[in-house]
Amino acid sequence: MISFQHTVIGYQRPLISIENLTLEAGKVYALLGLNGSGKSTLLKTLAAQTPPLGGALTLNHYPVAQLAKDGNLRAQQIAFVSSRFDGIEHLSVFEYVALGRIPYLTVFGKVSAEDQQMVSETLKELGLTHLTHKRTKELSDGEKQLVSLARAFVQDTPVLLLDEPSSFLDFLNRENLLLALLKWVSEGQRCVLLSSHDIDLCLEHNLPLLALAGGQIQELLALDKKGVVSVLLKGAAH
């Protein structure tokens, strides 16, 4: 689904180089790394916001350069829940989630009955139906996080990128989030990449782990927490 080949990533100067790595459909990948290791830059590159400095990078077989140019294609291939969502004045949860349908709308931005149906269903699946008419400014931090996940789901893309989605959630909501993501990838040709500091949660759900350290990405297989931490620390020491 996502494939790197001799890819050099960075902003102005090289930060990460990836020789050969393929992320498969049907999986939720966890990207681990210390602060400053380049997780955000990697995600921004995948989201086509920052071009790679060299090599090849494709998402669902589309080269990232093409995705950067073609707005509609990009929006129909990649959804990105970037940083923390703060809420927007006068914007209801329903309206906010419906914005995820923008890539499929005409220029006038009219949301069809089908789209509305989809928004309602997604909210229901995430257990957020009770928030439908609430203002986004009035939500709790956890609710904001889940609502922005709903918006990304509604965008209905093969690739979903999440930047530290669990940071503002309590343990119950964290569980719900991961279960929702796992269910979502199982429903079609989809792949999720989330960055996280929550090693326990990732191990608990048996997520395939990608360790980003020292400008390299390493797939970690069958390690416990201690092992993961030592890889991250060793990489950072380089």
Binding site: A47, Q49, G71, N72, L73, R74, A75, Q76, I78, A79, F80, S82, I88, L91, L99, G100, I102, P103, L105, T106, V107, F108, G109, Q155
Partner: peptide
């Protein structure tokens, strides 16, 4: 359509195509 997307900020608008 773009104005509605811009409500989320320019990065998210970009992500919405």
């Amino acid at each position: 359509r773009s104005l509605n997307a811009f409500v989320l900020g320019q990065d998210q608008a970009f992500q919405l195509g």
